[in-house]
């Protein structure tokens, strides 16, 4: 199953559950409060997922390591390499 189909499957299952509670499709005589809670649920989920995404990406951007040490080390090694290669007879 492709990822696309997995997503469609997941969304239809959730959508089915949501619709059957909200519109009482199976005539289960659910209490009114269930329907009131279920009705705006997709929007709640969407908003919470959006918040989670923003928070996660924001946190990861903020904590993305700046490798200053690595850059410094590389610069020094480049100097060393150039010298050594010149000694070995490399013409750049």
């Amino acid at each position: 199953m492709t990822k696309l189909l997995e997503w469609l499957f997941g969304v239809s299952v959730l959508g089915g559950v949501w619709a059957s509670v909200t519109f009482d499709l199976f005539d289960l005589k659910l209490p009114q409060t269930y329907r009131e809670v279920a009705w705006p649920m997709p929007l709640y989920l969407l908003v919470s997922f959006g918040c989670y995404s923003l928070a996660t990406v924001g946190y990861r951007v903020a904590t993305f390591n700046d490798c200053d040490e690595a850059a410094k080390e590389l610069q020094e090694q480049i100097k060393e390499a150039k010298e050594d290669l010149r000694k070995k007879g490399l013409k750049m």
Binding site: V57, R60, F64, N65, C67, D68, A70, A71
Partner: peptide
């Protein structure tokens, strides 16, 4: 993106695009 991994020479925009695309 993990542990002591990281980048050098990226500005905020580049980091944001990279992290966003990865997420």
């Amino acid at each position: 993106y993990r542990g002591n991994g990281g980048v050098y020479g990226w500005d905020l925009r580049r980091k944001l695009i990279s992290r966003g695309a990865n997420f």
